[in-house]
Simulated assay, not measured.
Amino acid sequence: MRIALATAIAAFALDDDLPPLLDALRARGHVAEAVAWDDPTVSWSRFDLVLLRSTWNYTECPAEFLAWCERVAASTRLLNPPDLVRWNTDKRYLSDLASKGVPVIPAHFLAPGDDPASFPTHAEFVVKPCIGAGSRDTQRYTAPNRAAAIAHAKRLLDAGRHVLVQPYLEAVDTAGETALLFFAGRFSHAIRKGPLLQRDGAATAALFAPEAITPREPSSAEIEVAHRALAAIPGGAPLYARVDLLPSTDGPQLLELELTEPSLFFDHAPGSAERFVAAIESTLAD
């Protein structure tokens, strides 16, 4: 099978998942190559499968990216599929999950035209765009710096972007974040991310913020919340899903459900790239 791993021109040298995944695919006899989604010279129909991987710059041109997904899916198979990608690339999907009983960090959304000062008061909170990745345009604020947070929200709204404001869960500063990886609905492995956002700090100017990653054994409560999130996905569990959870006094809460271009952290879990390839083969055989 001929398989394209869709990355971005700017991400070729930054995606640590690409080499082990390419090796695992080729070891199973597949013809696999990394190809940039934003390279207009690529003929996507020559592939039997296009697998979304490190298309991390899509947040700069979401409409163009979604249109590209539709074109690719019309000529070959794209995973995860376009309808799911469209739903998942806008963090307003968190409202859908919350309505289905998934414990989501409380979220307040602002739309262009809304008063940027209308979000709730929190001792510490995070302001981010609804379409965003890699912590770009994301900042952590304290209540005394609410004016700066309002100005941040206003800049995003004035640019036509929807905004998400959430309380900052301080337990992450010591416990970190847990990301659970699922392939075709089955748990594969988990990692710990150290805290990313500095109090009243600046947003990253890079393609993504540097992360401190270590393997982690998830708790039974984290596994349970992750399965609840997967069960709430429209159409059921897809080929790949990453469930990002934060600790709270009320138990694990969902930060994000990554179904588009999540890092899968193969280097931190021996055998995980091979498990992913097995999930690909099983999915395509269905």
Rank of each mutant, 00 (worst) to 15 (best):
A143E: 14
A212F: 02
V277D: 02
P262G: 08
A190E: 02
T121V: 15
A6K: 06
N88A: 14
V104S: 01
I280Y: 02
A13W: 05
A229P: 06
E256S: 06
L97K: 02
H122K: 03
A13R: 15
D286G: 14
P144H: 08
E170A: 15
A67L: 13
A241C: 14
V172Q: 01
I213Y: 13
A278F: 02
W87H: 12
Q166A: 10
L284E: 10
L21Y: 05
T41P: 00
V243D: 07
A205M: 09
V172N: 04
L66H: 15
P106F: 08
L259Y: 05
D90S: 02
P116R: 12
S75E: 15
N88Y: 09
F266I: 10
H227W: 12
W87T: 07
R186P: 00
P167R: 07
G160E: 09
S54V: 12
Q166P: 11
Y58K: 11
F187I: 06
D38W: 09
E224I: 00
P120I: 11
W87L: 05
E60N: 13
S220L: 13
H189W: 08
G271D: 09
S45D: 15
L284R: 13
I280R: 01
L156Y: 07
V50D: 03
T41V: 14
T204Q: 11
E217M: 08
A143C: 04
A209D: 04
D48H: 14
D158N: 14
F47L: 07
W68N: 06
A111N: 13
V42Q: 13
V35D: 05
R228F: 01
A203T: 05
D158R: 12
I105K: 01
V277A: 03
H162L: 03
K91P: 11
Y93R: 07
A279C: 06
E70G: 02
A279M: 07
N80E: 05
F109K: 06
G113C: 12
E222Y: 03
F12R: 15
A67D: 15
A184H: 12
P120Y: 11
F12I: 13
K193C: 04
A149F: 07
L254G: 08
P234V: 12
F276I: 03
A24S: 13
L264P: 02
R140P: 10
L78G: 09
E64D: 14
V277Q: 03
Y93F: 10
S282I: 00
P252R: 01
P234H: 10
